[in-house]
Amino acid sequence: MSTQHTQSSNAQHGPFIRFLATLDRRWIFLAMMLAVGTPILLQLRPAETAGPLSTATFDVIEALPAGSRVLFAFDYDPASEGELQPMANAFVHHCASKGHKLAFLALWPLGAQKANETAETILKPFHPEYQAGVDYCMLGYKAGNEGVIKVIVTDLLQVYQADVNGTPLSEIPMLKGVTNIQAFDLIINISAGYPGSKEWAQYGTSAYPDAFILLVGTTGVQSNQLYPYYPAQMKGMLVAIKGAAEYEVLVNGKYGETAAILAAQAAMSATSGGAMKETGVPAVLQEGQRRMGPQLVAHLLMVTLIVLGNIVYFATRTKGAAR
């Protein structure tokens, strides 16, 4: 490319195109920071309505008889908690509101911590009747990725002899008589990648189609690869933060202000000796909906950036071609 050429082509473009074409990427970074940060500060929150996939997911849990055994697989880590924690919270709250018995395990090392956190933030305050080791239990993390699923689908005790506290599974009331995970009615997998939803579908519902139902909550990045499993191997799926927000709407619509939640809020108020601090649907159950505000503005920014990029492209291309 000769310098004459560049000079002449440069002279043909207006200042706007020149500005865009030489724009430092840090301006784009700043724009993104503002697009996400401003709606958070302004607490912008658009209204949500549930789509078909989230509704299907909600309906599966609704249809299970109270007291069903549900196995949670927390296969994610803090890197994806922005997307997945709202789903985890809503799933656990929904299942507990229906009175299901919950077991938690993790194929990701940090997943076990996320399960503990979810029990702390959802079960303890809003479901005080749920006793650790009785109504729910923490099986913890095991190394081996899909190898763990492969074994526990036929022999749970080979991998998990005890829960995280060291209590043998046979002494945990909700796991009495359970020899493998086919004894669960539902498996809810919250997944950020490998190992995760794909492996649960492959080694779980593909191999044992009638043993249990699989529901998944997944990050946007991998959701494309999971759609083909719906609805045969996965009966429901929450996709990215939008899925979380939609599901929250459904769960909160029915279980957002249960007696237990109102009692917890009243108790909080009583211990503080002041006015009730949090009323109505708890904020922790609306995280997904709150994040849809920044999402809207940032998506609009993305669309604008792509359009601007193309304006530069066409402006430079047509002028170049015309010469």
Binding site: T219, G220, R291
Partner: peptide, 16 residues
């Protein structure tokens, strides 16, 4: 589109 969606959520969680 879905990847963008995911990445932005992670950013909003950090800013939160």
């Amino acid at each position: 589109g879905l990847t963008v969606m995911g990445r932005i959520t992670l950013l909003s969680q950090r800013l939160e």
